[in-house]
Design a protein around this nucleic acid. Sequence first.
DNA 1: ACCCAGGGTCATA
DNA 2: TATGACCATGGG
Length: 224
Amino acid sequence: MQVKIRRIFSKLNNHYGLQKWWPARSSFEVMVGAILTQNTAWTNVEKAIQALRKHSVLSPYKICLLPHNDLAALVRPSGYFNQKAKRLKILSDWFISRGGLRGLKKIETLQLRSELLLLHGIGPETADDMLLYALERPVFVIDAYTRRLFSRCGLIVGDEGYDFLRLSVEQSLKSNIHDMKEFHALIVTHAKEHCQKKPVCKACALIGVCNFYKQKKKEAQIEF
DNA sequence: ACCCAGGGTCATA
DNA sequence: TATGACCATGGG
């Protein structure tokens, strides 16, 4: 398991190269993006971020002060705009109450993670996005792509818990923050470019990562 | 016209 | 605990 995970990381890394995630201008923007991208295409998130920037409200203080309807209108392109407007306000309120970025840096990783998970609208993946990419903590992000890839590679059955997968990757990469940032980014890049809506994933075969193929909407798995 | 996207919450059984 | 409904826009 550990060896296979490292092998997948290595192959993706050799093929796609450095990813340099997360695309954002500040830690707070990473957190905003993490909420906005929930079950949403990143291209839509970019439009929402641009709108927030254009109106100069991409800060926790501005978001707290902005009326709900105005905020919802700005994040409209990212979908679920009513939910996400509320979640952004909850995040901003917490961000300020914990002393901003300076305050957050003083908090232990596990404490930070449990606090994030208590916020309404922030689940495991969103919290871990924030911890890894905004707060530089050694926490890996498990998303639907990771599960799918690992499943196709025969590493997992599919019903493993979130934390089991997260800890498995964290151990495999020896809690190296840079590698964890890259690995998650590589998995997303790979999935977006080659594993969607194609009968045969040429990249998987080329890279030798998962060699999956589809048959009439049903996936078939080949041994890794 | 349908399917999916870098999830999470809530109600029900 | 395990499914299903719901949230909503934009691109393929």
